[in-house]
Structure formats: C-alpha cells, structure tokens
Design a binder for these strands. Structure first.
Lengths: 191, 191
DNA sequence: AGGGAAAGGTTGCATAGGCAACACATTGTA
DNA sequence: TACAATGTGTTGCCTATGCAACCTTTCCCT
C-alpha cells in the first residue's frame, strides 16, 4: 500500500475526490465508471485502484469529507452537549441532506443507503465524542454513552430526513423546535 | 528532460505556475525563493529544477500564459488587421499592464523589464500572425512584415504603458482614439 | 442462448517526483 | 574580517504514477 503522507498521494487522492464530486453533479452514481473518474481526475485508471478499492469506498470517503467541511467549528470543539450545540447539529444535518439530494442525482438506491448510513455514523461519532469530552451526566458507562449517542444521532438524522417531505420544509425552525426538546428530554437534559 | 505530455508533468507545471502567481500577489518577485514556490505548490524543490531553469524562466512562462488567457478569441482568430482588431489589441494590452501592476508588486526592476519585453514580444507575434494570415497589403516580403509587426506592437505597448501615468487613465477610449489612427495610418490602412 | 462491447481489476516495466545529503554562493551580522 | 544562516543547484536512491497489455465479469443486443 502507498504511504498516505507522501505529497503525491495526498494530491492524487484529492484529485480523485474532486473529480468524483464533480461527476456526481452531472451523472448518477450508478452511471459513473472508474474510467470516468480517472479521466476527470487526469490520472491513470490503475492509479485509482492504488487508493480506493472501488467507487463505494470513494463515496464513503467523500461523504465523510463533506461532513467535516460542513460541521461548524463550535460543534467540533464542543465540550458539552448544550441546547445550542444540539440546534446546530440538527440544522447542519438537515442542510447536509438537502445539499446532497439537490446536488447529486440520487437515482441510485445503493448510493442513498450508503450515504444515509455514513452520515448517521458520522453524526453518532460526533455526538459520542462530545459526550466523552464533557464529564457527562450519563455516567462512566462507555456502553451506555455509545447507545445514547447512537439514539441521538439516529433521531436527529431521522427527523432531518423526514423533513424533506414536509410542506414547510424551508422553515427549519419548525424542525428544530420539535427535535431539540425530544433529544434533550431523552438525554435527561430537559429544560 | 521530462516528457512534456506526461499527465504528471502537466499537473506539476500547472501547480508551479499557480503557486507562483499566488506568491506574486503577496510578495515581491525578488523576495520569492525557489523554496517558497516549491512549498506553495506542494512539490519538492528538486522537482522545480526538472521543469524550470530558474524563477526567471518561470516568470517568462507565466507571463505568456497570462497573455494567452487575456487575448480575445476574435483577435486570436483574426484573419485581417481591422479597426476592431486594432482596438481590441490596444485595450487588451492596456488591461494586461494595469492588471500586472495592480496584482503584482512591481518592486523589482529586473522583473518589470522581463515582463515588459515579454508582453511586447507576444504582441508582436500576435500581430505578425494576423498579417500573415490575411493576404496582406504589406506585400510578400517577410522581412518587411516582421518589421511592421514589431513597430505596431511596440507602438501599442508603448502607448498603453504611457497611459498608466495619464490623468484620465480610466478613459481608455482616449487611448484608443490616439493609437488607432496612428497605427492604421502607419500601416497605410488609414481611413 | 450466444456473442461482442464495455467495465472491472491486475501486472510489469518505464518514468516523474519525493527525500536527504551535499557543495557552493549569497547575505546578514557580530 | 569572519562566520553563521539561508538560498541555489545537483545527485542517488526509493516510491508513486503512467501506460499498455491482459484476463475476467457484466451488460446488452439479436
């Protein structure tokens, strides 16, 4: 395997990611071939396989990168799961989903499922890391913390996703007003 | 020497050019080192020398690239040296000079001289190529055509450069109104 | 069903680029 | 002046990428 810190490797991987994101804006995921990606990235097809097993692995990484680009600094650095952090997580998740469905042609079920799973996972990890940073009220039980993070992430994601089909979907304050109390009460942080 | 059509070479050279242009916006030419360029381009310093002899060669290429980016298509494709083409050459040259002096810190005499010479040369080549494409009224004498192109290019460049110090320098129509008749009359194309 | 085109992967070899070390030149400074 | 620091330019060795060739798998057309 290649050395992930070699500048050539960093550049090549970035080229591939950028090319893939550009392609997603004009083609469906299923219709994109490795050849397409290699051409768009101006790299050799064989080189692609030195970095990614297949386009699914690439999608995974791109999804993760996009998540990191969208997460507000205050959330990433948060020491505690406050109202404000909760709101930002809800809004960001909603925005992420909206962007993804608007920019990419979600004509592929396999892609939609992969992206959904990935975002949920990233969300859960983010929440868990916040729980762990602040000496949390949830107690020291690592298992319990993980489950609470999983539930919270899933709840936020599920609501944000559902909101796509709501009539007032532009009114994100409506979404926040419903989700925040639910999550905070569930965590025993209710006001 | 490296193969100029290898995709790696094309990418590397582009990285170097882009890095150099970025550096020129925040440092004087004399203050820019090869190390700076290599760092900005995320390439190795030794790699720089595989592509350019020194930063002067790079400046030459970047100047030429910028010229090609600015030249209007109608001028590049022109079959004849018409009034309109003449006007566009004047305006473009003026714009090029203005941009260069605005964007780059022209604190280096060596740089200013190199850039000036290069633009003049590009201008003369462009004009000569137009003369050669249209069965010109200048006759078949290649030598004569070259001199006419050199004079025309120098005249346009000189005027555009002088215009930097004119009070109404924003009024480029004033520049055009002076240069166009001069050049066209000189070429025996007067109206 | 069958057969050809296109995509997915893999491999060996040639070349470009990364890295570290070196000698030399230039500059700044005590 | 001297000497330390920084920049220039080069070299040898190693790794990543390009390229062409190859086989396999998938798809699609009749």
């Amino acid at each position: 395997m290649v050395n992930q810190e070699d500048p050539r490797v960093l550049r090549t991987r970035q080229l591939i990611r950028t090319a893939f994101r550009a392609l997603l804006r004009r083609k469906g995921f299923d219709a994109i071939t490795i050849k397409d990606i290699a051409q768009e990235a101006t790299i050799n097809r064989a080189t692609f396989y030195a970095h990614f097993e297949d386009k699914y692995a690439l999608l995974d990484e791109v999804t993760e990168q996009a998540f990191h680009e969208m997460i507000p600094e205050r959330v990433a650095d948060a020491q505690e799961f406050t109202d404000e952090i909760c709101d930002q997580l809800i809004l960001m998740t909603h925005q992420y989903i909206v962007d993804f469905y608007r920019i990419c042609r979600m004509d592929s079920n396999s892609m939609a499922k992969l992206v959904d799973e990935k975002i949920k996972k990233m969300l859960q990890q983010t929440i868990e890391s916040i729980f762990l940073k602040g000496g949390t009220h949830l107690g020291p039980d690592r298992h319990r913390i993980k489950i609470m993070a999983a539930m919270t992430g899933s709840a936020i994601y599920g609501a944000a996703h559902y909101w796509l089909n709501v009539e007032e979907k532009d009114r994100t304050d409506g979404l926040v007003d419903i989700v925040r109390p639910y999550v905070l009460n569930g965590l025993g942080l209710g006001v």
